[in-house]
Computed example of a mutant assay.
Amino acid sequence: MKPAPLLLAGAAWLLPAAAFAHPHIFAEARLEVVAGEDGTVSEMRNVWRFDEMFSSSVVLDFDKNGNLQLDPDELAEVGQTVLESLEEFSYYTTVSEDGKDVKVTKPSAINVDFKDGQLLMFFSLKPAQAMPLKGKLTFGVYDPTMYASMDFPTDESMVVIGDKFASCKHQVVRPDPDEVLAQNEGTLTDAFWNDPTGTDMSKLFATRLEVTC
């Protein structure tokens, strides 16, 4: 079995397909979208706090000296592992500009901490291209393989930061699963249930931040 954080990369082949009908990793997330003085999106700050079960499994995998905790060098190794394994998934972060996808750059580092029995990750992403504050901008964080559930507990968990957002409107959108299923009934196939890595339908269910300028 690969180290636990590699499961974050959607290593669906490690377990039977039937096991992937629901998430196995749970995290509370926070997203801060920051505007620069030049009137563009300068960065997207992410904070993830993982459930105690998954956090414990990470300790078991990375506690090399057996002291039942993660020392600074071990935390750094966790961060480096996730930094490499989540690159192909854009670090679960999706960004669009007037409906067109915007790529994000690789963060310089993923900082990791362990407090009160839970693993925390902090990192910042930047749009790969200039993203002016105009039109409709959408930001979301979700796992396309559905192995990890990224939950934003309150609307205050997705925020905009910076004076340049003053002329923009923003709202947190939480899609109703029943409505999503009803609206997309014609496109749902067995592949969605049995091979979630082959579809992108989970995007329709994900909480997102919509900004209109």
Rank of each mutant, 00 (worst) to 15 (best):
N111R: 14
F152K: 07
S96K: 13
I25T: 04
M1G: 02
K203E: 04
K164C: 07
K106H: 13
Y147M: 07
S55W: 15
L6N: 08
Q118T: 14
A17K: 07
S167G: 06
M53H: 15
G198M: 09
L83K: 15
D71W: 14
V102H: 10
M146S: 09
D73K: 14
L188W: 07
P153E: 02
K136C: 04
V78I: 10
V34F: 06
V41F: 05
L83Y: 10
D51Y: 09
M44D: 03
V78N: 08
N184I: 01
L120F: 14
W193Y: 02
A191I: 12
V104P: 09
E97F: 12
G135E: 02
D101W: 15
P3G: 02
K103C: 03
S42N: 03
V95H: 09
M201Q: 10
M150L: 08
D190C: 08
A148M: 04
S124R: 15
V41D: 02
W193E: 01
D190Y: 12
V102L: 11
D195Q: 03
M146D: 06
A128D: 06
E97K: 13
G39N: 12
A128H: 04
F20W: 15
S96E: 03
M150R: 00
T212Q: 13
A17G: 03
S157K: 10
R208L: 02
K106Y: 12
M131F: 14
V160W: 12
P175N: 05
L181E: 03
T199G: 06
T105R: 13
H22M: 05
D116V: 07
E210S: 09
A35M: 06
S108I: 11
P72E: 06
I110R: 10
M1Y: 00
E97I: 14
L188M: 12
D38E: 07
E88I: 12
E32W: 14
C168H: 11
A35L: 00
L125A: 10
M150C: 00
S42A: 03
K100G: 07
E87M: 05
M131I: 14
P127N: 08
L133Q: 12
G79H: 13
D63V: 12
L133T: 08
L31N: 07
A109D: 13
F165S: 03
L68W: 15
E87I: 09
Q171G: 14
A27G: 00
E43S: 04
S55K: 11
M146N: 02
E179L: 10
K164G: 08
D190W: 13
M158W: 08
F62N: 08
F205H: 05
R174W: 07
M1N: 01
A130T: 15
L14T: 00
A109N: 15
A35Q: 06
D151V: 11
L204K: 10
D190A: 06
L119V: 11
L86V: 08
D71Q: 15
F50H: 01
L75F: 12
H170K: 10
M146Y: 07
D38H: 12
T199N: 04
V141I: 10
V41W: 11
V159W: 09
T187I: 11
F62K: 13
H24Q: 00
F122H: 13
S90T: 11
V78K: 15
L120I: 13
Y91I: 08
T189Y: 02
L15N: 01
E77C: 13
L204I: 03
A29Y: 01
L86Q: 06
F192G: 01
Y92Q: 02
P144C: 03
D190V: 11
V78W: 05
S167V: 05
L133H: 08
D101E: 14
